[in-house]
Design a protein around this nucleic acid. Structure first.
Length: 430
RNA sequence: GUGGGCGUAGCUCAGUUGGUUAGAGCAUCAGACUGUGGCUCUGAGGGUCGGGGGUUCGAAUCCCCUCGCUCACCCCA
């Protein structure tokens, strides 16, 4: 027991610290996403990380794994519990409903960025606290919006120089035609029941559609003999799907129809899509989305069409790093200060500190030594920080009232009259 | 929740059939005519070999348990 207590405290399982070097890529992703989203009229909404547990139970589906065993749920009041959001579509819909946005402006576009939580075993690109970037277009059934969201996702990835990703789409029907297809599928698959894997035998009753994306060879073979969703969806869904496909072609967006693409969350209807990347491990989806025309009515609102996607930031990042050149990873130029002040002798330190603040005031990023180290050590630090300039202040400079400026690229040194002159030179070289 | 793999210095790893004070590279720090970086050279610090128990004269090495990480499954971004 005592030994347990002596152990160093670590970050909780499946939760990661992000340090400055790698955070740069996070910033890049966020910037690319925000700019693309806003270019298309999507604006940021921030919802709480906690929600009433019932929101997720109703929207995601009571029998899904997420709700059954992966949610972080805590007691709130005596009667209610709150849950750390496992995804953000339901919270955004909740906000839309709660503020009755549909009354004043039915059609709205939002985007969000932030942490999500699912209590599962961590794996490559899959953590307990992970981050998603997503968009939601609420208040329309227009298939053009399905295409718009897909296009936006690809534009963000293009901007981040991710190559080789694949867009897969499918239609899973609506509440009218899905039950019929579910029944047919179950009947057809039951004929092969003995050959299905153990898991699929269970899925047969629990969630037939999941059999379609089983990875077992035998199950895959069997699925080839089964009729596809496309043959069974209603005219409305079929027409919608056709428009989506044709529009994607019109705007020359490459995609593949994947009849086995099934989503795990209950609220999806009609169009579902996924963006995958081959460089990943077994889990290759970096972005997934689709239409969810029943979600708002499921949680108590008026019938409202909606479509959107969520991209996993950690997963996307792995894909991006896999395709980028290695030099870019090491690029620390963003973290380098414009100048580093080397102070020689203790009596110069106060003067240096004043200069430091003057320069910062003028927009120059600058730092100095706080460990009273030798001149050589301070120079080494300036070099390691990749600082463009070094400012050297010793007793000589102090006495003459000048500032020595060294260009670390050329090695040239010169004397400046005052801080303002330093600012000019440094800014010229930015 | 289920299965596989792996835990030796801050990092990447060596470590022979069990055999003295456990090593290297990189990184860190310090020096090389004391006011100047990168390159080179020299040196230093840093490890209860994940933890606990067992076998043995002797364990990083063999056995058991445990914890951690990781990959995969279920499921999902």
């Amino acid at each position: 027991m005592e030994k347990e207590n002596e152990k160093n405290i670590k970050a909780p399982l499946g939760m990661k610290d992000i340090f400055p070097e790698e955070r740069q890529l996070w910033g890049e992703m966020e910037k690319a996403a925000r700019e693309e989203f806003e270019l298309s009229g999507y604006y940021e909404i921030r919802t709480p990380v906690f929600e009433d547990t019932r929101l997720f139970v109703r929207s995601i589906g009571e029998t899904t794994d997420i709700v059954e065993k992966e949610m972080y749920t805590f007691g709130d009041t005596a009667e209610s519990t709150i849950t750390l959001r496992p995804e953000n579509t339901a919270p955004v819909m909740r906000a839309y409903l709660e503020y009755e946005l549909y009354k004043t402006k039915k059609f709205q576009k939002f985007y969000y960025i932030g942490p999500m939580f699912r209590k599962e075993r961590p794996q490559a690109g899959r953590l307990r606290q992970f981050h998603q970037i997503g968009i939601e277009a609420i208040g329309s059934y227009d298939p053009l919006l399905d295409v718009e969201t897909i296009k936006i996702a690809t534009r963000v990835y293009d901007r981040l120089e991710l190559s080789g990703y694949e867009v897969k789409i499918n239609s899973i029907g609506c509440e009218k035609c899905r039950p019929g297809f579910r029944k047919v599928l179950k009947e057809e698959l039951s004929k092969y029941k003995d050959d299905l894997c153990e898991l699929c035998k269970i899925r047969l009753d629990r969630n037939v559609f999941r059999v379609l994306d089983c990875k077992q060879k035998k199950c895959k073979e069997i699925c080839k003999n089964v009729s596809s969703i496309e043959e069974h969806i209603c005219n409305d869904c079929s027409g919608h799907f056709k428009t989506v496909k044709n529009t994607l072609k019109d705007i020359e967006l490459e995609f593949k129809i994947d009849p086995h693409l099934v989503r795990g969350l209950d609220y999806y209807t009609k169009t579902v899509y996924e963006i995958t990347h081959p460089s990943m491990g077994a889990r290759d989806t970096i972005c997934a989305g689709g239409r969810y025309d029943n979600l708002i009515s499921d949680i108590g609102g008026p019938p409202t069409g909606a479509v959107g996607f969520a991209a996993g930031m950690e997963a996307s990042m792995i894909a991006i790093l896999n395709t980028r050149k290695k030099e870019r990873e090491k690029d620390t130029s963003q973290l380098a200060p414009d100048a580093y002040i080397v102070s020689i002798g203790n009596e110069t330190r106060n003067y240096c500190f004043k200069l430091l603040n003057t320069l910062r005031q003028s927009g120059i990023s600058v730092d100095m030594d706080y460990e009273c180290r030798s001149t050589k050590a301070q120079m080494r630090t300036a070099n390691k920080l990749n600082s463009r300039f070094t400012i050297v202040i010793g007793p000589d400079e102090l006495e003459k009232g000048v500032i020595k400026l060294k260009d670390m690229q050329t090695g040239d040194e010169k004397l400046a009259e005052d801080a303002n002159e330093i600012v000019q030179v440094v800014k010229r070289n930015k």
